[in-house]
Computed example of a mutant assay.
Amino acid sequence: MTYGQGRTYKKIEVIGVSDKGLEAAIQKAVLKAQESLEKLSWFEVQEIRGHVGKDGLISEYQVVLKIAFELK
């Protein structure tokens, strides 16, 4: 079977949050989704935002993702 042929996927939206950076926020979201979903396949970054602390430094990164998983 060719990759992707005969498969059906669903996408959900999740938000990853981290004070370590964008990649860490993405990874947290994917790992959390993996806890309750099977056969994760890919992700798409929809939005990137964050929080700026009183000192002017970035204190939190927030990444909105769509994560796809294969339906049974």
Results as ranks from 00 to 15, higher is better:
Gln5Glu: 14
Gly6His: 08
Arg7Ile: 03
Arg7Phe: 01
Arg7Ser: 10
Thr8Cys: 08
Thr8Met: 09
Thr8Asp: 09
Thr8Tyr: 07
Lys10Met: 07
Lys10Cys: 00
Lys10Gly: 00
Lys10Ser: 05
Lys11Met: 10
Lys11Tyr: 14
Lys11Glu: 14
Ile12Phe: 01
Ile12Trp: 00
Ile12Gln: 02
Glu13Trp: 01
Val14Glu: 06
Val14Phe: 02
Val14Asp: 06
Val14Cys: 03
Ile15Leu: 06
Ile15Phe: 00
Gly16Asn: 09
Gly16Phe: 05
Gly16Met: 05
Val17Ala: 10
Val17Glu: 15
Ser18Val: 07
Ser18Asp: 12
Asp19Asn: 13
Lys20Ile: 01
Lys20Tyr: 05
Lys20Gly: 01
Gly21Leu: 00
Gly21Glu: 02
Leu22Asp: 10
Ala24Ile: 02
Ala24Arg: 05
Ala24Pro: 00
Ala25Asp: 01
Ala25Tyr: 05
Ala25Glu: 03
Ala25Pro: 00
Ile26Ala: 05
Ile26Arg: 04
Ile26Met: 02
Ile26Cys: 06
Gln27His: 13
Gln27Cys: 10
Gln27Asp: 15
Lys28Thr: 08
Lys28Arg: 10
Ala29Ser: 07
Ala29Asn: 07
Ala29Pro: 03
Val30Pro: 02
Leu31Asp: 13
Leu31Glu: 14
Leu31Phe: 08
Leu31Ala: 07
Lys32Gly: 10
Ala33Lys: 02
Gln34Gly: 12
Gln34Pro: 02
Gln34Glu: 14
Gln34Met: 09
Glu35Lys: 12
Ser36Thr: 15
Ser36Asn: 13
Ser36Cys: 09
Leu37Gln: 03
Glu38Val: 11
Ser41Asp: 13
Ser41Val: 12
Trp42Phe: 11
Trp42His: 04
Phe43Pro: 04
Glu44Tyr: 07
Glu44Phe: 04
Glu44Asp: 13
Gln46Arg: 14
Gln46Ser: 08
Gln46Cys: 09
Gln46Asn: 11
Glu47Ile: 03
Glu47Arg: 12
Ile48Leu: 13
Ile48Asp: 02
Ile48Asn: 04
Ile48Ala: 11
Arg49Leu: 05
Arg49Ala: 12
Arg49Gln: 05
Gly50Pro: 08
His51Ile: 13
His51Glu: 15
His51Gln: 15
His51Ser: 15
Val52Asp: 06
Val52Arg: 08
Gly53Asn: 09
Gly53Ser: 11
Asp55Gly: 01
Asp55Pro: 01
Gly56Met: 11
Gly56Gln: 11
Gly56Cys: 08
Leu57Tyr: 10
Leu57Trp: 04
Ile58Gly: 01
Ile58Trp: 02
Ser59Val: 15
Glu60Gln: 15
Glu60Phe: 12
Glu60Pro: 01
Glu60Ala: 11
Glu60His: 14
Tyr61Ser: 02
Gln62Glu: 13
Gln62Leu: 12
Val63Met: 01
Val63Lys: 02
Val63Asn: 00
Val64Tyr: 12
Val64Thr: 14
Val64Met: 12
Leu65Ala: 08
Lys66His: 06
Ile67His: 07
Ala68Lys: 06
Phe69Asn: 03
